[in-house]
Simulated assay, not measured.
Amino acid sequence: MAPTRHGAIPRLATVLMLAGSALLLATALLATASILLRWFTGQPIPGDFELVQIGSGLAVFGFLAHGTLMRANILVDSFTGWLPARINEAVDAGWNILWAVITALLAWRMALGAADAWFSGTRSMVLGVAQWWAIALGSLCFAATALAAFWTAWHQWKGSPAGAPQA
């Protein structure tokens, strides 16, 4: 049974995943354009590597919550595969709670990093792009992932379809 997609948290995860997908496509197009310009004119797009670094990082952050809800992470059930399904769900719920705590801590620390980058005026080297906003968006994506992990754990614990593994 596939996880349910109803509710604010799954909708947020889907929006972040779609935004991450669009951003990853944009960075691929930027890198391609820069390489083509380098071939034909000898000059790349200035700061292309900075924009690709920022865009790729944010894209990955955008996928985390959706991957958590879809249980598209690496599952190791070598030691628990023989247990009844209900016990496996409870074990998975426990790991999702741990994942939620870790991502919540990462969100908190990145929020502090974003504030520090804001106050210090940290900018990229070539284009001089402010860094705080990218760090803040990463923090929000980690916070959304924490919510998704708690949401998944809750449904796994209750034994409802949202906690069911992907087929």
Rank of each mutant, 00 (worst) to 15 (best):
F61R: 00
T103N: 15
T4M: 01
L64V: 07
A8Y: 12
L37K: 13
I97V: 15
A8S: 14
A100E: 02
I9K: 05
L127F: 01
V52N: 10
V52S: 11
V60I: 15
N73Y: 14
G128H: 07
A149V: 04
D116Y: 03
Q43L: 12
A19V: 11
F49R: 10
A19C: 08
W151R: 08
A72I: 06
R109D: 03
T145W: 01
L58V: 15
H155E: 11
L105K: 02
G42R: 02
L64S: 00
A31D: 08
W157Q: 11
D77Q: 15
S139Y: 00
A2F: 13
F150Q: 01
F119R: 14
I74F: 12
A167C: 01
I74D: 07
P44S: 10
G57P: 09
W151M: 05
H155Y: 04
G121I: 10
T14G: 13
M17C: 13
V126E: 10
A19S: 04
D48W: 11
P46N: 07
S34E: 06
A33R: 10
I87S: 04
A13T: 09
D77P: 01
S124I: 01
G42V: 02
A117Q: 09
E89G: 06
P10G: 14
A13E: 08
G20K: 10
A149E: 03
V52K: 07
R38L: 13
I9E: 04
I9F: 06
K158W: 00
A114E: 07
R123W: 06
W99M: 13
L127Y: 03
G57N: 12
W99V: 12
Q43I: 10
G81R: 07
A144M: 07
W157V: 08
R5C: 01
A13G: 09
L51S: 11
V101M: 12
P44V: 09
A13Q: 09
N73R: 15
A31I: 06
W118R: 13
G62S: 08
G128E: 08
I87C: 02
F142H: 06
A8E: 09
A2N: 13
G113K: 05
A115F: 12
E50M: 06
L25N: 02
A22R: 06
W151H: 15
T68E: 11
I9L: 10
L75H: 15
I45D: 06
L112H: 13
G81Q: 08
I97R: 01
S124V: 03
P46T: 09
